[in-house]
Design a protein around this nucleic acid. Structure first.
Length: 877
RNA sequence: GGGGGCGUGGCGGAACGGUAGACGCAGGAGACUUAAAAUCUCUCGGGCGCAGGCCCGUGCGGGUUCGAGUCCCGCCGCCCCCA
């Protein structure tokens, strides 16, 4: 290769050798489909090693975006790799198809939500298919299919019968103009996002899944999820929010109406002796009682109500309070009483709506007590502090220490004092140790059309009656009117009027539909037997679940995953399946980002509207294409339609092909991080696909037929070692999701093949190398791999998609010699080449003799010799 | 405010406590072209030196170690989650 022959200009000829991805990619996609390469049975044979790969299914917005490309490429690499490793791989795809955008389209453009959704699905399916994903499309479904949501209704009813569903009153955001309930994110500055009307709080009867029943298990089981990212588990644990503490009953010094006690929840019963006040929420009965007899208190209570009630708002708001005039007795200190205040930072929804204040060891209490001149008594002594002289220095002390000023708790540490205090409370009958949870029950009622109808009927005589199983599915009506405000299901003239299944009298259908998080909480189970009569087939889910590798965005780290974990438990307890954890392995990918561009007038520009140029000093600038309007190159940020910094996957595939898009997306950086989509990066990936093709195509005439590789010349052995080391390295990289490293190793291997040249004696080793590189690249560039394979093995039956993964020959992984770094005092002074089995004395002698090492030692005595086999020699002088 | 994570060339990033910067992108020089594209070769952290080579360098300051990007302590900055 290096002995150039200018007269014939070999590269001139080579330039015409090009991989025509435009025809090749659809051809191989058709071939995979024809051979049903990716099909698996609902119930795998007992000897099969099953592997379930799943990416979070998309919302059918109409077009795929780069985030989808990244997500599905990652999953496809795993699926193809695991298949090659001999697993029976299930890799399905479906659509998270219910939700508000379809109703918005209906309102704005008069198109039916169903029509809009199924059109979008058709578009997106075609786009996904162009990516060459190894998906079993026969398992496809959309959550808006009656075949799907009907089974969901069956699960809903089973959960109801198992006591996992309840109906209770709850506050909602009500838009009085649109006549709809708004999600929190639809309320902007207290106004409805569409109508701009002031949102009101309204109490409605709503459906709830009793997720809190599983709170302890949902928390504890996180420990067993060893292939989940730690931070996701941490986020879930925080969300579930277990806190240990005590309920303490304080006797009122004088009864208030019929009330003689106030119950408080606290996580710090160890600090009870540091109490200086008791505080209740504005909605608390005691606050109401105080308000009733004192207009000033009433005014304060009303003020609290107007304030935001989110935890964040409360954290930031100034701590304010108002004395009720009531007093409570201390459970431990005989004869001591403390004032009862109303405080704006106490929440009625959390715990009991009342707290006891210990300003010495709680920051909020400290702030409150300081402001209103309430007593501050320290009862926890920091390590090393002197109890006689210790004072709090302008802040609460919240860390561990030794209890003092606390009677029978004195001398204990915080944890021990909590236990003792609870024992004492229980002995006196004034309290109990309890566990409190932050997790609330899951409200699933939505007052919308495009969702799964909740299968109940309201009867005046019989109350809430479940729809009998044989009347499922409760289908959405087709003829709906979106011109009126409110829920179209409720507005529908006939749909909701039905006979009560119990007494037969006229009754009314439930018009609420399910939160779309319900739809995505069990789709992974339905994929195992997507056409089954029951929601799932037990033999299928028991065999296929859990999902071995689940891949999706970090934005679903809490809700979707938690709800799915809940649903799986619910399905277990209603006999549908037998496991608790649906996702054994979880991988969360980063976002796809791009530079953003603005025109001279500040309008956002699409990347394809900008023409770039490079100045002599390396700075890049841009102008609007076809003119000279200057462009401001902005930050690299998440692709978004509003900033127009998007790249259309369809256009990329048109121009470079799916393999190039996949290769670039994998090569740029580790998949858990945010990646930057760059035009030059894609171009580089494209160059590599062509280079690989050329490497194979030009070598082809000189290759011997396929067969065993003989022991060859020295050069051949080097190439064979590179081949087998690359197999080992790529395998390891794929196993650990280091796809960018796998790509780098394949690049290096391509360089090694090119450098090895094409001498006659190299033939068999060269064939082995080229066949191997095609196969190693196949999970990432499946079409090109097939194309290369068909060149290398014309007429062969098997596709790369059907071949087993290459095996590295251990004999070729071993090296005869190894390069050791030689350091003097930890600084690199040279390297030596030694036989792998050389003894230490030989190695030290050789290292010491090295010219540059000699100079560094400079005749000084060597005090210590360190040898790390295969790595380094270090002399201490 | 609490919790978690991350800081390595111009850029994305490699690196079981053991030769920092693999691989790619961008850049530079050259070859082939009338030219461009494509392709190929060389170069590419900073400084000193004709060179052999030397010094500095993984956010900053300490520490542990024969040896620290990696481990420990304290800062600074950025990101995420819960508020």
């Amino acid at each position: 290769m290096n002995d150039a022959t200018p007269a014939t200009r070999p590269d001139q000829r080579q330039q015409d050798i090009r991989h025509d991805f435009t025809s090749a990619e659809p051809r191989w996609q058709a071939e995979w489909e024809k051979r049903a390469c990716f099909s698996v049975p609902d119930v795998p044979p007992p000897e099969a090693r099953k592997y379930y790969v799943l990416e979070m299914f998309p919302y059918p917005s109409g077009k795929i975006h780069m985030g989808h490309v990244r997500n599905y490429t990652l999953g496809d690499v795993v699926a193809r790799y695991k298949r090659a490793r001999g697993h029976l791989v299930m890799h399905p795809m479906g659509w998270d198809a219910f939700g508000l955008p379809a109703e918005n389209a209906a309102r704005e453009r008069g198109i039916h939500p169903g029509t809009w959704t199924y059109q979008n699905i058709a578009n997106m399916r075609a786009e996904l298919k162009r990516m060459g994903l190894s998906i079993e499309w026969d398992r496809e479904f959309a959550t808006c299919d009656a075949e799907y949501y009907g089974r969901q209704q069956k699960l809903f009813l089973d959960f109801y019968r198992a006591g996992l569903v309840e109906r209770k009153e709850s506050w909602v955001n009500w838009d009085p103009v649109d006549g709809t309930v708004l999600a929190n994110e639809q309320v902007i500055d207290g106004r409805g996002w569409r109508s701009g009307a002031l949102v009101e709080k309204k109490k409605l009867s709503q459906w709830f899944f009793s997720i809190t029943k599983y709170a302890p298990d949902l928390l504890e089981a996180l420990d067993g999820l060893d292939r989940w990212p730690e931070r996701v588990k941490l986020m879930q644990a925080n969300w579930i929010g277990r806190s240990e503490g005590a309920r303490v009953r304080f006797r009122l010094a004088g009864p208030v109406a019929d009330t003689t006690e106030v119950e408080v929840f606290t996580t710090r019963p160890d600090t009870l002796f540091g109490m200086s006040f008791l505080a209740v929420a504005a909605e608390h009965p005691l606050a109401q009682a105080a308000a009733a007899r004192d207009p000033k208190v009433a005014e304060f209570v009303a003020e609290c109500r107007r304030m935001g009630t989110s935890e964040a708002a409360i954290e930031q708001a100034e701590k304010r309070g108002c004395d009720t005039g009531f007093r409570v007795a201390h459970p431990f200190i005989e004869g001591a009483t403390f004032p009862v205040w109303i405080a704006n930072f106490v929440l009625m929804e959390y715990g009991t709506g009342a707290i006891f204040g210990c300003p010495g060891h709680d920051e909020r209490d400290f702030e409150f007590a300081s402001k209103y001149g309430l007593a501050i008594t320290p009862v926890v002594l920091p390590p090393g502090a002197d109890p006689a002289s210790f004072t709090l220095d302008g802040a609460a002390y919240t860390d561990d220490g030794t209890i003092f000023n606390s009677g029978f708790l004195d001398g204990l540490d915080v944890a021990a004092a909590k236990r003792r205090a609870i024992e004492a409370l229980e002995a006196k009958g004034q309290g109990t140790g309890v566990v409190n949870w932050r997790l609330r029950d899951w409200g699933v009622s939505r007052q919308r059309y495009w969702g799964c109808p909740i299968p109940f009927i309201h009867c005046e005589a019989c109350g809430v009656v479940p729809v009998p199983d044989d009347q499922l599915p409760v289908k959405l009506p087709e003829d709906v009117d979106f011109s009126k405000p409110g829920n179209p299901l409720d507005n529908h003239p006939t749909w909701k009027h039905v006979a009560c299944p119990s007494c037969g009298k006229p009754a009314r259908r439930e018009t609420d539909t399910c939160d779309t998080f319900v739809d995505s909480s069990w789709y992974f189970a339905r994929f195992c037997s997507p056409r089954a009569e029951a929601p799932v087939t037990k033999a299928a889910v028991d065999a296929w679940l859990p999902v071995d590798q689940y891949i999706g965005g970090i934005e679903h780290a809490i809700l979707h995953l938690l709800y799915s974990r809940f649903f799986t438990r619910g399905m277990r307890d209603t006999g549908h399946l037998t496991l608790a954890e649906p996702f054994a392995g979880l991988f969360t990918q980063g976002m796809v980002q791009h530079e953003s561009y603005k025109g001279a007038d500040g309008r956002w520009l699409y990347p394809e509207e900008v023409e770039f140029s490079l100045a002599a000093d390396g700075t890049r600038s841009g102008v609007v294409k076809g003119g000279n309007e200057p462009v401001t190159i902005g930050r690299v940020e998440a692709m978004s339609k509003s900033k127009r910094n998007t790249v259309d996957p369809g256009a990329i595939i048109d121009r470079y092909g799916a393999d190039t898009a996949r290769w670039f997306i994998l090569s740029d950086n580790p998949p858990e991080r945010d990646m930057e989509w760059t035009e030059s990066g894609v171009a580089g990936a494209y160059r590599f696909t062509q280079r690989l093709y050329r490497l194979v195509a030009t070598a082809l005439p000189g290759l011997p037929p396929a067969g065993p590789v003989p022991e060859g010349a020295e050069g051949a052995k080097k190439l064979r070692q590179a081949t087998h080391r690359t197999i080992a390295a790529v395998t390891e990289a794929l196993e650990s999701f280091a796809f960018n490293v796998a790509v780098a190793r394949i690049h290096e291997f391509a360089n090694a093949i090119a450098e090895a040249g094409g001498g006659e004696e190299m033939g068999a080793a060269r064939r082995e190398a080229l066949e191997t590189i095609a196969r190693l690249a196949s999970p990432m560039m499946p079409h090109l791999a097939e194309e290369l394979w068909s060149l290398l093995r014309p007429g062969t039956e098997a596709l790369v998609a059907q071949l087993p993964w290459p095996e590295a020959d251990p004999a070729l992984l071993r090296a005869e010699t190894v390069t050791l770094a030689v350091q003097v005092l930890g600084k690199l002074r040279g390297t030596i080449e030694v036989a792998v089995d050389a003894d230490e004395a030989t190695i030290f002698a050789l290292a010491e003799a090295e010219e540059n090492v000699q100079r560094s030692i400079a005749g000084k005595p060597i005090r210590k010799r360190i040898h790390v086999p295969g790595r380094v020699v270090n002399f201490v002088v």
